[in-house]
């Protein structure tokens, strides 16, 4: 081998440590030195075919190259990621199980609303490249043209428009916050609940409901069937440039960032095996910056942006904190 990768240097260094340590070498260091010596499981707490499943499969070849071991995608869907999250926490903290998941808002939501037996802090982010935002939209043929119109109509009569939204979601919290900021009583609204983003989007595109509040990314294939009214983001969203920002409609309201999807591990691994954690973060970074990976994933409308563990963790915890602050709105 002519080009020394970081892993090789690390291996040699750790190996040397083990040799000098002799028989008293700590088993965790030995573990780290040989890591990774077998295939690594990627736990996806969603069914085959969802965003995280596609992300994990599309990104796997590039990550495998950096890790030097094959990745095995393990789908553990159910109970709003609670089953997959519990499964991940039950795995030994040896670096052979990593997660590809919509960390926010699913982990905070399972904790806040489902009484999941873990804490938000039990998960440590490696990188969360995909960021989704709540989009208020109406069907392409609708008479409503702007979000200001929606607010105006609802101010006059809160039941004049029907609103499609997924209960106990970031979208729901954003909808209620926007209404409260506009002095509209949310309890008087005609809210139609959908058990997923997909059905809520279909109802919006098919004019079943007058306005839908759903994650914007999923609307992309249906772009021609809907009219974006307001996106709940601070800055212009590059994947949906025609969506006006919420602030542009004159509504001054706090909002929760939508889904944050990407790569994570358990905090236990981060604390007990810092070397493995660093190695994993490095591998994800190099794979995320690989031009081939960026091109291949872009074609599938999958994100590769590198934010890094610190920024990703901060975004995730900020989201969790905001969710906790507004938890009463979700119940």
């Amino acid at each position: 081998m002519t080009n020394f990768t970081r892993r090789d240097t690390f291996r040699i260094a750790a190996g040397g440590l083990a040799v000098t340590g002799g028989l008293v070498a700590m088993p965790s260091i030995l573990q780290a030195a040989n890591y990774p010596s077998r295939p690594i499981n990627v736990i996806v707490p969603f069914a085959t075919g969802g965003y995280n499943d596609r992300l994990s499969r599309a990104f796997a070849p590039y990550l495998e190259k950096e890790l030097g071991q094959p990745l095995v995608i393990v789908n553990k869907p159910g109970a709003g990621t609670q089953l997959g999250n519990s499964y991940a926490l039950n795995q030994p903290a040896d670096g052979y199980s990593i997660m590809c998941t919509s960390a926010a808002p699913y982990i905070p939501l399972t904790v806040l609303l489902q009484g999941a037996p873990y804490k938000v802090e039990d998960f440590a982010m490696l990188n969360l490249p995909s960021r989704d935002y709540t989009l208020a939209a109406t069907s392409a043929g609708s008479e409503i043209k702007t979000f200001a119109e929606v607010i105006e109509k609802l101010k006059k009569d809160p039941s004049s428009l029907s609103i499609g939204v997924q209960p106990a979601s970031a979208d729901y919290a954003n909808m209620v916050l926007a209404m409260q900021a506009s002095e509209i009583d949310p309890t008087k609204l005609r809210i139609v609940t959908y058990d997923g983003g997909g059905p809520a989007r279909n109802a919006t595109a098919g004019a079943q409901v007058d306005v839908g509040f759903v994650g914007g990314e999923g609307f992309l294939p249906l772009k021609t069937k809907v009219r974006p009214l307001a996106i709940f983001a601070a800055e212009k969203v590059d994947w949906y440039p025609d969506a006006p920002l919420l602030a542009a409609s004159g509504v001054k309201s706090d909002f929760v960032e939508g889904s944050q999807r990407g790569w994570a591990v358990t905090t236990k691994l981060k604390n007990e095996q810092p070397e493995i954690y660093k190695f994993l973060a490095g591998a994800v970074e190099r794979a995320s910056k690989n031009p081939q990976a960026i091109e291949a994933l872009q074609k599938q409308e999958l994100a590769t942006t590198w934010f890094g563990p610190e920024a990703s963790d901060k975004a995730y915890r900020d989201n969790a904190a905001k969710m906790a602050k507004y938890v009463d709105l979700l119940k």
């Binding site: 069914a47 596609r54 279909n202 294939p221 249906l222 021609t224 069937k225 599938q300």
Partner: peptide, 27 residues
């Protein structure tokens, strides 16, 4: 025509389309 899965089976098909860089739907 819409890129919307009618059931579980077509949801898998959509994923297969996407994995080959094709997004089914109106466009």
């Amino acid at each position: 025509a819409l890129g919307i899965p009618g059931g579980g089976a077509t949801a898998i098909l959509i994923a297969a389309f996407m994995m080959h860089n094709i997004v089914p739907g109106p466009s």
